[in-house]
Amino acid sequence: MMYISRRERFSAAHKLWNYEFSDEKNIEIYDKCANANFHGHNYELIVTLRGEIDKSTGYVFDLKKLSEILNQRVINKLDHKNLNLDVDFLKDLIPTAENIAFAIWNEIEAELKTANCQLHKIKLIETENNFVEYYGQMQS
């Protein structure tokens, strides 16, 4: 089994806010991330695929093609956007790093399934110290 990864970057604004909570509870839970005027991050997205090496190409998956998919399906929709207001696949989600990673997985998974490989992991780095990793639904 071979694992390959591609890193992309985007900058975006968001605020963490649950409209079912009171203002006080939102501030208690999300603190400065609940800023009414939003705040921003320079995110790093690392997408990892796993699979067998294709004997005819030497690839698990063409990383140039992976970059094109990520840019078309994800980066162009997120970069320099307000994640609360501008991104269709984040609609109705609190744009935490966890929810963003989950939504990115759902946005690209079907397009990355091939005979040789499948999506293995989404790693989203929000700050120098904070990141999430998502491996999809657990198989039973």
Rank of each mutant, 00 (worst) to 15 (best):
I104D: 00
Y134E: 02
L85I: 11
A36M: 10
K77N: 13
S140P: 07
L85A: 15
C117N: 05
L45C: 06
E28Y: 13
E128C: 01
H80A: 10
K25T: 01
K77C: 09
E52G: 08
I46T: 11
L16A: 00
G51R: 02
L93Y: 09
Y19Q: 10
D31S: 10
H39M: 04
E28L: 13
L49N: 00
T57C: 10
D92N: 15
E109D: 08
N76D: 13
D54F: 11
I75Y: 01
F131K: 00
R73I: 04
L78D: 01
H39C: 08
D79R: 07
M138I: 14
D92S: 13
A110H: 12
K113L: 13
E133M: 12
Y134S: 03
A13P: 03
I75P: 03
I53G: 05
E98D: 10
V60R: 04
N71D: 06
E68V: 12
I75L: 04
N116V: 06
H39Q: 08
I69E: 01
P95V: 10
F89H: 00
I100S: 09
E52V: 14
Q139P: 06
I53P: 02
E109R: 02
S56Y: 14
L49R: 05
A36E: 13
N26G: 05
H80W: 07
S67I: 14
A36N: 09
A13F: 11
F131H: 08
N35H: 05
N37P: 08
N71S: 09
K121R: 07
G58C: 11
L78F: 01
N84A: 10
H120T: 02
L66G: 02
H120L: 02
V132E: 00
I100C: 10
F38G: 05
I75N: 02
T114Y: 09
F102T: 10
E20R: 12
E126R: 04
I125G: 02
V60H: 09
K91L: 08
I69Y: 12
A97H: 10
K113M: 14
N116S: 15
I27H: 08
C33Y: 00
F38T: 06
M138A: 12
D31Y: 02
A103H: 01
Q137L: 10
Y135R: 03
A101P: 00
A101R: 03
A13S: 09
K32A: 05
N84F: 05
I53K: 15
C117G: 02
Y43Q: 03
N26D: 06
A115G: 06
F21M: 04
I29Q: 10
D88M: 06
L119E: 03
E109H: 08
L45P: 00
E128A: 09
F102G: 05
L16S: 04
K32V: 07
I122Q: 00
N99W: 10
K55R: 14
F38Q: 01
H41Q: 04
Q72D: 11
T48G: 05
Q139W: 07
A101W: 03
D62V: 12
Q118F: 15
